[in-house]
């Protein structure tokens, strides 16, 4: 029924292939994410979550296996087409926020729009709207250093939403935040999923996230262990 936004088939990732320190981090992982899903991927540290997310987000190519974003096989794409997929279809949120320190919140969001070819005026307008959406309408002109971790992560979320991506990927988005602030960020993601229909995948080693999502993929030693439904009731 539901439209598939993202599909991975039998993904294998081996680091340092052919070297003595060769390590197989993902072992034939397959999964499907449908439009409107809010999914968490949990597992212990070192289980391959970041690697999986980087592959899903087209930041990295798998050693073997297929990745399909909106039905497009990314294996067939060149570097610049891959960059376009990242810009148009994927929104990244990182643990360390990764904002550009020297420019304002609004400019951080603008840049994502400018990179994808929006005019300066349109980018400015949309950046403002997005920052209002994540509750930072009054912090447009603050630089990252003038904002709390939670606020910085909100800017990062606004930036991830900039080009109306098909899927938002968060790698430990609450990892650098205290529990309370982390909960606020998860609530914001939940709201974006519920009210705005964004498809969201959040990776975490913190089991708490499972309470916010529709279902959770458990990963261990590079393999999917099981999938469980979220405990949330408001879906």
């Amino acid at each position: 029924m539901s439209e598939t936004v993202l599909e991975v088939q039998d993904i294998v990732k081996t680091y340092n292939q052919g070297l003595p320190n060769e390590i197989k981090v993902l072992k034939e992982v397959s999964m499907k994410i449908n439009k409107g899903d809010f999914v968490s991927i949990v597992g212990p540290s070192g289980s391959g979550k970041t690697t999986l997310l980087d592959i899903i987000g087209c930041l990295m190519r798998p050693t073997s296996g297929g990745v399909f974003v909106d039905g497009v096989d990314v294996k067939e794409l060149g570097d610049s087409e891959l960059a376009n997929i990242r810009g148009n279809k994927i929104g990244f949120v990182f643990q360390q926020y990764n904002l550009i320190q020297t420019i304002t919140a609004q400019e951080n969001v603008e840049i994502a729009l400018r990179i994808m070819g929006k005019s300066k005026g349109d980018a400015k307008k949309r950046a403002k709207e997005l920052l209002e959406l994540v509750g930072l309408g009054k912090r447009l002109n603050n630089k990252p250093s003038q904002m709390s971790g939670g606020e910085q992560q909100r800017v990062a979320i606004a930036r991830a939403l900039a080009n109306n991506p098909s899927i938002i990927l968060g790698d430990e988005p609450t990892g650098n935040l205290d529990t309370k602030t982390g909960e606020k960020i998860l609530n914001l993601l939940k709201k974006l999923n519920n009210e705005n229909g964004y498809t969201i995948v959040v990776v975490s080693h913190d089991p708490n996230v499972t309470e916010y999502v529709d279902y959770t993929i458990h990963i261990r030693d590079g393999e999917i262990e099981k999938t469980t439904n979220g405990t949330t009731t408001n879906k």
């Binding site: 610049s80 960059a83 990242r86 810009g87 990764n98 994502a112 990179i115 900039a162």
Partner: peptide, 16 residues
């Protein structure tokens, strides 16, 4: 480095 990584993650091509 990190910032350039971010630019690439949010869609910047090599050319850009």
């Amino acid at each position: 480095r990190r910032e350039i990584g971010v630019m690439k993650a949010i869609g910047a091509t090599k050319r850009r």
